[in-house]
Write a protein that binds this DNA or RNA. Structure first.
Lengths: 119, 119
DNA sequence: ATGAAATATGAATGAATGCTCATATATTCA
DNA sequence: TGAATATATGAGCATTCATTCATATTTCAT
């Protein structure tokens, strides 16, 4: 095979610029961290619960049948990533999703899965 | 506080149905697994590279400056999740994204991050 | 002030995970 | 067939991570 066909040429062109086209670690890290946050059943459930209504830590723990401590740890992580915000109301602290974008991403992913099942 | 105000009533109503409104583990698991896959720098880079052009294992390893073995292991995981597909071409195996949905999800997440930086 | 209730936090532990190394498998070519 | 090239795979190791347990902190009620 002396001559490459056209699509092979395209491939070569893409290959040449590929290395530079991939963003540096620092730029990708926040995205990766958000996906990491979504990659845990407990956190996904917390987020789904908060998508219905703001909730206190205790309410989330009750809803998910999990310990207060575990939920609190996870909320702390979600808060660090700005995925949730918290406001104290008396003895309770109300957590809510920081933006609705999150739910859109969930929906998009569900779409991917559904498309997948139709094979 | 004898009477609850209106938004408090809404909250109670939401709380009552909350437990049932959260999907069972089996239904969430595939979503969580996809997010887990996206929650790793190497796999994100592989996906971004494949979003430009189909690539062989070796080409990916070269592009990302990582070992053949490591890339192959990760590709195997991405394949299990139907995020990529592979076709053998002679000695090489060409990997490609199984659908463009994936890139949409990445974009959506980037939007979330950008919105976030404008606080 | 004091006790109770809600939440946060640090340390410890077991499980999951990513990489490496060695090796197996598959394909081409001479 | 046999050597070379590309990819896959299993075991081992170090690290990360989710939960638990014990305890600290904050706020309310009395």
């Amino acid at each position: 095979m002396v001559e490459k066909d056209f699509s092979e040429q395209e491939h070569q062109a893409a290959l040449n610029h590929l290395k530079e086209s991939i963003p540096a670690n620092e730029e990708l890290e926040s995205m990766v961290n958000i996906f990491k946050a979504f990659g845990d059943m407990t956190r996904v459930k917390i987020i789904l619960a908060l998508s219905k209504t703001p909730l206190s830590v205790g309410e989330i723990a009750d809803t998910l049948d999990m310990s207060q401590s575990s939920i609190s740890h996870q909320l702390s992580l979600l808060r660090q990533l700005n995925l949730v915000t918290s406001v104290r109301h008396g003895r309770n602290i109300h957590y809510r999703l920081s933006d609705q974008h999150i739910i859109t991403i969930f929906g998009q992913t569900k779409d991917h899965i559904i498309e997948d099942e139709n094979d």
